[in-house]
């Protein structure tokens, strides 16, 4: 080692011409990356007013990646490296990397399909499989969701392409369905009027499209009713809480019974049923003991 280093004459390497070339390469690199960032910033500011958040992000990333590659090529060219040989080597390496990273390439191509389909964009609330969250970013290989309890979920683009995706906030208004059961003894006309009045009185419920009310059928312990209320998508929680609370309050005040199934538990086939005792009944009279135990 000492011999090798001893043979190198550093004075021959760090000539003024070499130092000047290196300095120029550094300047090209710094100025080039600055220019790329500047172009991306200007394009974002001036030309993207009509684009969605997702398209803006894609355009911004494309400018930065392509610009970055061009700057690196310019630096290598300035340093006197033969780019044809380098690109040839890069081609061979590319094939090897391509074979080794089929999944990643699949994700990139799936990502392109996803962007062109415009099924969702940044800020939408989507459900993929059992995961629901706000689309946080759409990247080269994956999309990232921020869940409502503030977790970040990364889903590969290929998974999204091949699975069912529900965009919850695509349209400005939605319908919320409430499944309600009332006792068989109730007057269904009165129940219907009460439920529609609740929908009309709630300021968050839309007047049009009209609320939907369907008597779904005769259930095990109740007559099952579906009440569908249209609302503006941003009022989801407020509508859900207010309507359920109002239905309970109104039914209680009008004496409309909401039945619920009763379950009796047995501790096993060999045991007796649980004893049931009426606690608020009048106390039973004490029967005097026959044989006078007080003695």
């Amino acid at each position: 080692m000492k011999t090798i280093l001893g043979n190198i004459e550093f004075g021959n390497i760090f000539t003024p011409a070499f130092l000047f070339g290196a300095l120029r390469a550094v300047i090209i690199l710094v100025v080039g990356f600055f220019l790329v960032r500047l172009i991306a910033f200007l394009v974002r500011r001036v030309f993207t007013h009509n684009l969605t958040e997702q398209s803006r992000m894609m355009l911004n990333k494309s400018i930065i990646y392509i610009g970055g590659i061009l700057v690196v090529i310019a630096v290598l060219s300035d340093l006197g490296l033969k780019l044809s040989a380098l690109l040839g080597a890069a081609g061979v390496v590319g094939i090897a990397v391509g074979i080794a990273s089929q999944t990643s390439l699949g994700n990139i191509i799936s990502g392109l399909f996803l962007v062109s389909e415009k099924t969702f964009e940044i800020g939408d609330v989507v459900t993929v499989g059992s995961k629901t969250g706000i689309v946080y970013s759409i990247d080269l290989l994956s999309i990232k969701l921020r869940t409502f309890d503030n977790l970040l979920i990364r889903i590969p683009n290929q998974t999204i392409i091949s699975s069912e995706l529900t965009n919850i906030t695509r349209f400005p208004i939605r319908r919320m369905d409430f499944n309600i059961g009332v006792a068989y003894k109730e007057d269904l006309q009165r129940v219907r009027e009460t439920l529609l009045a609740i929908a009309h009185e709630n300021p968050l419920c839309l007047e049009e499209p009209e609320p939907l009310l369907v008597f779904n059928g005769f259930g095990n312990s109740s007559i099952d009713i579906l009440l569908g209320i249209w609302f503006e998508k941003s009022n989801y929680l407020a509508v859900k809480n207010s309507v359920i609370m109002t239905i309970k309050e109104r039914f209680d005040s009008l004496g409309i019974e909401i039945p619920f199934p009763h379950v009796t538990l047995y501790a096993g086939s060999a045991t007796e049923p649980f004893p049931v005792r009426q606690v608020d009944a009048a106390p039973a009279k004490k029967t005097p003991k026959k044989d006078g135990a007080a003695g």
């Binding site: 349209f171 400005p172 208004i173 300021p203 839309l206 249209w230």
Partner: peptide
């Protein structure tokens, strides 16, 4: 004033 939707559900 109650709210209502005017037009189709996707672009009203």
């Amino acid at each position: 004033l109650s709210s209502t939707w005017f037009g189709d559900p996707d672009d009203g």
